[in-house]
Nucleic acid binder design. Structure first.
Lengths: 221, 221
DNA sequence: TAAAAAATACCCAAAAGTAGGTATTCCATT
DNA sequence: AATGGAATACCTACTTTTGGGTATTTTTTA
């Protein structure tokens, strides 16, 4: 007999995905969806208000506060609440940051329903769950970066992120300098630092990174 | 009483989304999911094999053949089958191309379950259905482009798409020329044509377009 | 088969980005 | 008080991209 059902909070800014997930989970008689949120801040306020919450299922790219920040805040205040990340992408920096933030699980959206349920079961039993693709990514990264010599933090400063956003919006160095009220020389310096931090070769790499990590949104027609 | 249920074919390369959609639709007693596909070619072969199919629900970004191509092929052979596009993005070129391809409906993934059902109902009654955001996009574009003077086709040729992919993968003009066994001059020409076709200012714009339209995948760590 | 579209290739010049430095100031954390 | 990171700014030099053309060949389509 089921002692009590697993209480889940869902967060995704795509309503349809949210609806779908909800149905998948509600089909299970040992899972109960106790809340839904559309952005990071909403998640946090709901976590505060919901006692006995077992699992929070988070999309990485959410308005207001992204999955990484939300995870950190949840884990610092309610470490017993499990956090499962559901993401479209599989970028090494993501995985790294999320593991550091204290995520308990991470699966891709192109995983199936069965994997989702497996992940949830793992989490309630206190085990972490990382999907096979994620595991592969971690392995690769682990092999390459000899862990010790290069800490290689891919954390851009706020200013750098600002520059990245402008670059991705097709601004030139001169235009960026204008908008930020700084010298073009400085923008150049930022660009150089960004290239080396992200380990990309040129603007193309920066833009790709910006879109993939959600530093800029895929929307803006 | 229901004369007969609406037969739907689902296509999306993200299994979880597929599972979710399936559940949403199967909850409705007048809708029947008669097939699921993970890529464009699969969709086409299923459409051929499934008689009496009413609606195909398509993601734009699919492996092998994208939503636009699939729509065109379906519409040319089976014009009575309704095509509903489900997309993450709302880019004006998308909407334009899809309308031209003969789509019957287009909604965003951040629309809700209710809108999905409404769209399906509209389609079976022979009416087109475009979500509110899409309509807004169309209005905007319509206002700006005085329709007559600039045809402004945003259809990149295959070769151009190849170049775009390489650009987005951080290749320089010289490197692209090498890989494609053509002169750097030619690559330059392609770049220029791409910039003007996409109406973007620089590489950043090209990469953004590539990612947003799925010309390149968000995956490749 | 004629016309249009796509792919190819080149020219010149200007603008922008990349790569290697150095250096100062400000701010936070030890 | 000191170390270190972040932001600022400049220098030289080289590479790449962009913008303005023109032009030939191949492929597609009307």
């Amino acid at each position: 007999m089921e002692a009590k059902s697993i209480k889940v909070l869902l967060a995704d800014d795509h309503e349809m995905i949210l609806d779908g997930l909800k149905l998948i989970l509600e089909q299970q008689d040992d899972i109960e969806v106790v809340g839904e949120a559309y952005d990071g801040e909403e998640v946090l306020s709901m976590v505060r208000r919901l006692p006995e919450l077992d699992i929070v299922i988070l999309d990485i790219n959410m308005p207001k506060k992204d999955g990484i920040e939300v995870t950190k805040e949840i884990k610092s205040t309610y470490p017993e609440v499990k956090v499962l990340i559901l993401s479209m992408y599989n970028r090494k920096e993501f995985v790294k940051n999320l593991v550091e933030a204290g995520t308990d699980g991470y699966i891709l959206k192109n995983a199936g329903k069965s994997e989702l349920l497996r992940a949830i079961q793992a989490l309630v039993q206190g085990e972490p769950y990382y999907g096979p693709e994620i595991t592969k990514t971690m392995m690769k990264t682990y092999q390459k970066s000899k862990v010790f010599d290069n800490p290689m933090d891919v954390n851009l400063s706020e200013r750098e992120k600002e520059v990245v956003r402008l670059i991705a919006n097709e601004a030139s160095t001169a235009e960026i300098a204008d908008k930020l009220f700084i010298s073009p020389h400085t923008v150049d310096s930022h660009r150089k630092n960004i290239l080396s931090k992200l380990d990309v070769k040129n603007t193309a790499g920066v833009v790709k990174y910006a879109l993939q990590t959600g530093i800029i949104k895929g929307f803006d027609l």
